[in-house]
Write a protein that binds this DNA or RNA. Structure first.
Lengths: 244, 244
DNA sequence: TTACTGCGGATTTTCGAAATAATCAAACCT
DNA sequence: AGGTTTGATTATTTCGAAAATCCGCAGTAA
């Protein structure tokens, strides 16, 4: 029964998960949208259970929120969330950088240079609008990961990756409106240099600024898209987890 | 069809989730155990789909790991993971404390004292073995949460809570073997005092030590229960998420 | 008019069977 | 004998229908 396509060893739920994540990040599914099962079922051509599985995982990633027994929602965006997200990312990323520089070996340095090279070459090939390409987003993500891959903390890296994904959605929202992004590639090169030179303090500051300036850019050009909704309500998580 | 019990407004999956979490933390489901659906189905008296939902959420909390299309596993424990978890918790908790002290108001201070009082009174009532009680664990969790509740960062608080849960399992493993825990309550009081006095640096250091000493305690008395398994393999997460 | 209650339609949540994939062991080839 | 393929068995993943729940609205009473 030839479905879309079912790559090697990939579970159906995983495939839907990836497609939905992509659609949420690209805002094909707009923030705050109610996700009705019937609609999704025909959109992604899978059954209720499979959808539910994917939705559950997206809730874990913070891209979808669950409302008790009233269904699911694309996680809303807001100025408050963006600022909070940015602060947490800076905290985590600074620590990752520090640990990676302390613990990284030659192999780690080589991987960074390789990741940068791949990203750099793709930018040249794609020209001015590289930032709109999914392929570039992947290489960009891989580059930033390579910088901190040697930090030696699986837990920190997992947290970092989830935050990076969430932030990606905000970045996409602004790139949509700002064809001429400022030259991130220069910053990337500087960060790489300072990291490989094991200059912890400077590397941390550069990454800090890299993140915060991007946020400022988003706020300047895309904040009109954000929900004015209350600072508190937009962040209710479904599960009070343990306490109470 | 009178099932166990179905409290107000609680979804079945949520109930199973809570029970499984409790069983994993208490090690009724031992670390590293393969979770077969048929077994779980009769143990928790629910269907495949409902189980799958609960399992998915537990994966998000890091208490269960998924192995491709080869089923689920209770997340293994290891010395490496415990140490890593501890380091990340210290990073997060220090930041939470700092922000809460910067931003907390009178109401926040009052809530801390109330949470401490409830925990303290329960300890008196239960006597020497209070730490084995689930009720105390809840109040203990609530107390630590109250300290940082005013930090103003939903994202940081969510991360903190998940890490706290994971650490809880390790704490349980050692309390099982060490009936006479050292007097945590004195530490709790000191922390509360320094937090309310807005003495950020000291409060951070106390919490830091509070966490690290507990970890040392666990290592000293329960590390023989840990898997010797490789430092890397025990932490594979199911989903490479975005980066390739 | 305003607040409360009970019905009807829509949506989510749960179920267990059917399809798909992995595991294990015996037989087969080299 | 060692290693590989095949086939039977077991476990997981997916499906769509059935049950439970929620939401809006009409009708009634204060």
């Amino acid at each position: 029964m030839g479905n879309t396509l079912k790559a090697a060893g990939e579970t159906r739920a995983g495939d839907v998960l990836a497609r939905m994540r992509s659609d949420i990040i690209s805002c094909a599914l707009k923030p705050g949208t109610k996700l009705r099962f019937e609609t999704l079922r025909e959109l992604y051509e899978v059954s209720f259970s499979t959808l539910r599985e994917a939705l559950s995982r997206l809730v874990a990633e913070g891209l979808v929120v669950a409302e008790g027994q009233r269904g699911f929602l694309v996680a809303p965006v807001s100025l408050f969330d963006l600022n909070d997200l940015t602060d947490v990312r800076v905290l985590v990323e600074r620590q990752c950088i520090k640990l990676a520089i302390d613990r990284g070996d030659d192999r780690w340095e080589a991987d960074i240079m390789a990741a940068f090279h791949r990203m750099d070459r793709l930018q040249s090939r794609l020209g001015a609008s590289y930032y709109l390409s999914d392929e570039w987003a992947t290489l960009h993500s891989a580059f930033h990961l390579s910088l901190v891959a040697a930090c030696g903390s699986p837990n920190l890296l997992e947290i970092r990756q989830k935050l990076f994904e969430r932030a990606h959605r905000y970045r996409r929202m602004s790139s949509q409106f700002r064809p001429q992004w400022r030259a991130k590639d220069v910053e990337h090169k500087m960060i790489m240099d300072r990291v490989i030179a094991r200059d912890t303090a400077t590397a941390q500051d550069l990454v800090d600024r890299h993140i915060r300036e991007t946020t400022e850019n988003v706020i300047a050009h895309a904040s009109h898209l954000f929900a004015q909704s209350g600072t508190a309500d937009a962040f209710r998580r479904p599960d009070p987890v343990a306490a109470e």
